[in-house]
Amino acid sequence: MKAKIGIKEADLAKVAAILNNVLADESIVYQKTRNAHWNVEGPDFHAAHLFLESQYNELAEIIDEVAERIRQIGHYAVGSYAKYLELTHLTETKYEHTDSKGFFKELLSDHESVIMNIRGNLDAVEKAGDQATEDFLVGLLAQHEKMAWMLRAHVA
């Protein structure tokens, strides 16, 4: 059943497409963070392992919230890695070494890319008249900016 929330269906479809792209990005960053958590090595292993765990737990919540927002506006959330890889603008893990600094640099780049992507879509969501999704995306920006800051502090 379609949502009747005062926004044209065509506009909701555009917003859902944007959100599914965000969902794909979030899912790729999540998996890359899990990979780093599982495979990090070095003298800072324990601290890096725990830090990465906190980041992937936050990303897991974000993923759920993005998917639920898509459903709230009457559309379906994508749910396969094949589709995520088709929709994302990120790449799979590139880093070949297992030290924390390398993982952190790659994840930082991904978070900054997610930030720029979300920021670049805010105008389209605003034009669609979906203030709730616009507010939701602004909240995601703040979360990713904090996560990026934490990563940046590790590689400075």
Rank of each mutant, 00 (worst) to 15 (best):
3 A>W: 02
4 K>N: 12
7 I>E: 07
7 I>Y: 01
8 K>A: 13
10 A>N: 14
11 D>V: 05
12 L>Q: 08
15 V>I: 04
17 A>T: 02
20 N>Q: 04
22 V>L: 10
23 L>M: 01
24 A>Y: 02
25 D>Q: 13
25 D>S: 09
26 E>A: 12
29 V>Y: 00
33 T>Q: 04
37 H>P: 06
37 H>R: 10
41 E>P: 04
43 P>A: 15
48 A>Q: 01
48 A>R: 00
50 L>Q: 11
51 F>W: 10
53 E>N: 14
54 S>P: 05
58 E>C: 10
60 A>P: 05
60 A>S: 15
61 E>P: 09
64 D>L: 09
72 Q>G: 13
72 Q>I: 09
79 G>H: 05
80 S>T: 12
82 A>L: 09
85 L>Y: 04
86 E>T: 09
87 L>K: 07
90 L>E: 02
90 L>P: 01
92 E>I: 00
94 K>T: 14
95 Y>M: 02
96 E>H: 15
96 E>A: 15
98 T>E: 13
103 F>T: 00
106 E>M: 07
107 L>T: 03
109 S>C: 09
109 S>M: 05
110 D>P: 03
111 H>A: 13
112 E>W: 06
112 E>Y: 05
113 S>W: 07
113 S>H: 14
113 S>G: 14
114 V>R: 00
117 N>Y: 15
117 N>E: 15
118 I>G: 06
118 I>C: 06
118 I>H: 03
121 N>Y: 02
122 L>Y: 00
123 D>T: 13
124 A>H: 11
124 A>Y: 11
124 A>N: 12
124 A>F: 07
126 E>G: 12
126 E>C: 10
130 D>N: 07
130 D>K: 03
131 Q>T: 09
132 A>C: 09
133 T>N: 06
134 E>T: 10
137 L>S: 03
137 L>A: 09
137 L>K: 02
138 V>L: 08
140 L>Y: 01
140 L>N: 06
141 L>S: 12
142 A>L: 13
145 E>Q: 09
146 K>A: 06
146 K>I: 13
147 M>T: 02
148 A>M: 11
150 M>G: 13
150 M>A: 12
152 R>M: 08
154 H>E: 15
